[in-house]
């Protein structure tokens, strides 16, 4: 079983979200990067872009696969990981750390509570046969 840090929240599309004061940092889970394999390209929107929860915000590509990225919450992007375009392999090496993707200023506090807890995400993975 891939690591699932207990202090994060998760989506069914395998993104994680981390509360940092009033902002939320976003990336993809260890499970997601394992399934993708070697990540060779990450496409992220620009700072200032408005995200809508459950809608796609970007793309991550491995050697074999193209996969959409889904916004865990609605809000405005205040920061993107500028290292990812040149070192997309950070997503594999450190998915919860240096492989982060965005920092978002949430527009609706209610979105956070819709996300899965670590326990729920673990349950979701095991139920869907992972």
């Amino acid at each position: 079983m891939s690591s699932i840090p207990s202090d994060l929240r998760y989506t069914r599309e395998h993104e994680w979200a981390k509360q940092e004061g009033s902002r939320v940092r976003v990336g993809i889970t260890a499970y997601a990067q394992e399934q993708l394999g070697d990540v060779v390209f990450v496409e992220l929107p620009k700072v200032g872009t408005k995200l809508t929860a459950h809608k796609t915000f970007g793309v991550v590509e491995s050697v074999k696969a193209v996969s959409d990225l889904f916004a865990p919450i609605s809000g405005e992007i205040v920061e993107i990981n500028a290292d990812l375009p040149n070192t997309p392999q950070l997503v594999n090496q450190d998915p919860y750390g240096r492989g982060w993707m965005l920092v978002v200023a949430p527009s609706s506090a209610g979105d956070w509570d819709q996300l899965l807890t670590a326990e729920q995400y673990e349950q979701f993975l095991s139920e869907s046969g992972h």
């Binding site: 394999g37 070697d38 491995s62 050697v63 074999k64 594999n92």
Partner: peptide
């Protein structure tokens, strides 16, 4: 088998 340890 599509991969064992990683394609690269």
């Amino acid at each position: 088998p599509v991969q064992y340890r990683g394609i690269i």
